[in-house]
């Protein structure tokens, strides 16, 4: 949508002044106030966001290069030590590995599960809305509650393992207590790629958020007309190839949206880890957000805490920039 002309006080895009000539003067006098009014009303929000988002980001950036490394606030410039130390910090590097692995697995599982459920529900099963409600209700629950419950369900001595044991499974999984990293390639100080303990956290997170992907895909599927599918069927396409050739490509914008929303939730993930597992033995389940919290509020290492949060911001930007670019491109393509 185009930005309306600045002298127009008309509502919406299509509107224009349709007042009678006699009342034009009155309208014009009112205009100068009316023109300023939108900005005036927005001003508190603009100022609040300017200070609390943009100002604070700059402030945190400054803290990250300051000498504020004890309880006493010292905002003198201290160089980039906080960052260079992070590059050699086992806990931070483990956390970076974990959060990237976690994001890939969690977003991947949620997308696959969400898409599967959406396609199944789109085929109009008996009991329709009931299924949807069952898959969506975890979204209304806090990550804290999720963490508390899954901590018990995936406790090696309780929950799921009790059932597996009854089924006669010999070696029970250690879930989030496991310290293994598979396949265990050594890279500097840390082992790559996947800490097994993270799988438990991915299960809990996907339990909570898959419904979101499903809801987005369902909305997308409902936007694809039955005519289009019918036309493909008339052309002799099989159900499977209709999905592969027609429907999946049309769901691309939905996938991008899901990756943006879930990806950014995942990169800053804090509460679920904090409640369910903590940093874990050998930091197998630690993430930068938890390290940031403990650096800042437990260890008074404010410069380090700030530096970690700057890295987190960069991570989010790195994820969002290509995703938003891709979305704008698909939007342009669909307009043509």
């Amino acid at each position: 949508m185009a930005v309306g002309g600045d002298t127009e006080v008309a509502a919406g895009d299509a509107g224009s002044t349709r007042a009678e000539p006699a009342s034009r003067d009155r309208v014009r006098r009112k205009r100068s106030l009316e023109r300023a009014l939108p900005v005036l009303l927005l001003l508190p929000s603009i100022l609040a966001m300017g200070v609390f988002v943009y100002g604070f980001i700059a402030w945190t950036g400054w803290v990250s290069v300051s000498n504020w490394t004890t309880f006493v606030r010292d905002l003198s410039f201290g160089g980039f030590d906080a960052y260079t130390r992070l590059l050699d910090d086992f806990r931070f590097l483990s956390g970076m590995r974990n959060v990237i692995v976690f994001t890939v697995l969690f977003v991947g599982v949620s997308v696959v599960l969400g898409l599967t459920l959406a396609i199944l529900l789109d085929r109009d099963p008996w009991g329709g809305p009931l299924w949807r409600n069952i898959f969506l209700f975890p979204l209304a629950i806090s990550f804290v509650v999720t963490g508390v419950v899954w901590q018990w369900l995936l406790n090696p001595r309780a929950g799921v393992n009790l059932l597996l044991d009854r089924l006669g499974v010999e070696t029970l999984p250690m879930w989030y207590v496991s310290t293994a990293v598979v396949p265990g390639w050594r890279w500097g100080q840390i082992d790559l790629v996947i800490p097994v303990a993270l799988v438990a956290v991915v299960i809990a997170a996907a339990w909570q958020m898959s419904g979101f992907a499903m809801a987005i895909y369902l909305a997308g599927l409902q936007g694809i007309s039955e005519d289009l599918r019918e036309a493909a069927r008339v052309d002799g396409a099989s159900e499977f190839s209709i999905y592969r050739r027609v429907i999946l490509p049309m769901l691309r914008p939905m996938t991008i949206t899901i990756v943006i929303v879930l990806g950014h939730i995942s990169l800053k993930t804090f509460d679920l880890i904090f409640v369910m597992t903590g940093p874990g033995t050998g930091y197998v389940t630690d993430v930068p957000a938890v390290y940031m919290y403990e650096s800042t509020f437990r260890a008074n290492q404010f410069a380090r805490g700030a530096a970690i949060s700057v890295v987190l911001l960069v991570l989010v930007v790195l994820l969002m920039a290509p995703a938003i670019w891709a979305r704008n491109k698909t939007e342009e393509a669909s307009r043509e």
């Binding site: 600045d6 939108p38 604070f56 402030w59 800053k268 805490g305 949060s309 911001l313 989010v316």
Partner: peptide, 25 residues
């Protein structure tokens, strides 16, 4: 108004920041 889309998008970005970045201030 002139620039309202830019202001809107600037406000919207506030939704996507990891809140750790504003925590200390």
């Amino acid at each position: 108004f002139r620039g309202s889309e830019i202001v809107f998008n600037a406000l919207l970005l506030g939704m996507f920041i990891p809140y750790q970045i504003v925590l200390i201030p």
